[in-house]
Amino acid sequence: MGSKNRMKKKLQKALIKTVLLITGVLFCAPVLFLLSGSIMSRYELNQSLLPLMTGQEELITWVFFPRYPTFEHYMRILFQTPQFFVVFWNSMKMVCLILAGQFFIAVPAAWAFAVYSFRGRKFLFTLYIVLMLMPFQVTMLSSYLVLNRLEMLNTHGAIILPAVFSAFPVFLIYRDFCNLPKGLIEAARIDGAREWTIFCRIGLPLASGGILSAGVLGFLEYWSLIEQPLAFLEDQTLWPLSLYLPEIGPEQAGYSFVAAVITLIPAVFVFLTGREYLEQGITASAVKG
């Protein structure tokens, strides 16, 4: 292989990398808008977004480094807007309870599918996969009917309970349990371990990757829930952030930017700390079993 050829290849790779990097940064550009908007003074915001508010036929402008950076909007949201906290904790409460519930319900179910062979296992598992694949449009009415019967409409339970029994984490964690060597479980049984002990001592630690993947994917999904609360929560004080944010009009742009940034923080935190598991989760959902 000539050195000229190798040089050319290297150059080509560098070029590909640069192009991919630039597009990637463009993909994340919305964050830059949000960050710069959140520290822009009210006057500056008004100036750049005025056409958007008045409907004038003029283009809006934007500077990524505000001339007079200020934290006034942050201060306002943190100290003068109690309703924002209500909404924020609504979101937190729902997501945390959903994930906790999924942990206690989905992990044992995945264990049952992966470890035991019983009659109807295949049928049940196929049923779970079909349920996992059904979008909200299909299950909306059935959820409504049961929530109505249980008198849970317009409570957080209406969002939490159906999500807790979602089939998706079962499927994801099932993949990890399947990778456990069968011999390990058998050996533990022979040593006299009870089934519950095997599950806690062997199953849980070895499948922690899959459980975390389900957690990360779940967090990102439920943190931006729109359809369910829109349909089942009438009372605005019960709304999650994802519904409340768009209600803030463009005349309150500063407030809106800060609210968006604060909404983004937990999601980005989970994304960055769980990035590895996120990727695992994505690929695990792909490998069909």
């Binding site: 919305p30 949000l34 809006i60 994802s242 768009p246 909404t263």
Partner: peptide
């Protein structure tokens, strides 16, 4: 970088989309 949009709730990009795609965008 490419995975990041997955972490951005739809609600947070509404304002950006308005700034991008509206008549004055």
């Amino acid at each position: 970088l490419y995975l990041f949009p997955l972490a951005m709730p739809a609600a947070t990009v509404v304002l950006i989309w308005k700034m991008l795609f509206s008549k004055q965008g």
